[in-house]
Amino acid sequence: MEIELLARDAINGEDRAFLEFIQACKIDLYKTALAFLRNEGDALEAVQEVTYRAYKGIRSLKEPSFAKTWLIRIMINYCNDVLDKRKRIILDEAFIHTEGRHEPHDGLEIRDAMEGLDARSREILAMKYFQDLKISEIAAALNHPEGTIKTWLNRALRSLRDKLDEKGGGFRA
């Protein structure tokens, strides 16, 4: 796979390979950030920050075949940090009325419901459904057995369904 070769070269210190690796993954990074942060500007900022963090830490990556999963994991962790910080900020009424004017309108109920889930559930759902990772890839990225990942995914889907039912979303997984 081309990404794996680029990652291997990037680990060995080749900057051009790192740039090509990021270029190959940037759409997936952006989609992940947008799914979590629900704002185009924040998603673009997240891609920039994750690119920087990945550049600083690329040499710590031991297995090039997990490079894309590693990169997505950095993005998910960054997004969870941003969301945690947002929860701590007290929003004034003017900000609340201006918030959300530039958000995409498809899947808003699912995104709202996902925001109400715990970090692990959001992470697993994003890896499985936004990044189309296999259970085995998620298990390797999170360093847990596949059975545990299946259990966590099942619980996350159940929680998501419950949240959507509360809002009248009618979601069926």
Rank of each mutant, 00 (worst) to 15 (best):
K167N: 09
K68C: 01
N154Y: 13
R8H: 10
L5Y: 13
K31L: 10
A140Y: 06
E166V: 06
M1S: 13
R161N: 10
L71W: 06
R53G: 03
K26P: 01
V47R: 01
Y30D: 02
L61T: 01
R73I: 07
R172D: 15
I76E: 14
K31F: 07
R158W: 10
A33I: 08
E166M: 04
E146S: 14
L34H: 12
K128Y: 07
I74Q: 15
Y55S: 13
T51E: 03
D106Y: 09
A46L: 03
L29N: 05
E99F: 15
G13R: 02
K85L: 12
F95W: 11
H105I: 09
I76S: 09
F36S: 06
G147S: 08
I110S: 07
E20Q: 15
I135P: 00
E99K: 15
A43L: 02
H97Y: 14
L71V: 11
A35I: 01
D28C: 09
T148I: 09
L108D: 15
A46C: 08
D106W: 10
V82I: 04
C25I: 09
I11Q: 03
F18H: 07
R120A: 11
D165S: 12
P104C: 13
D132Y: 14
R59D: 09
R16P: 01
K150F: 03
D132I: 00
A35Q: 13
E4V: 05
G168W: 01
L157T: 12
E45G: 05
R59Q: 12
F171V: 02
A141W: 06
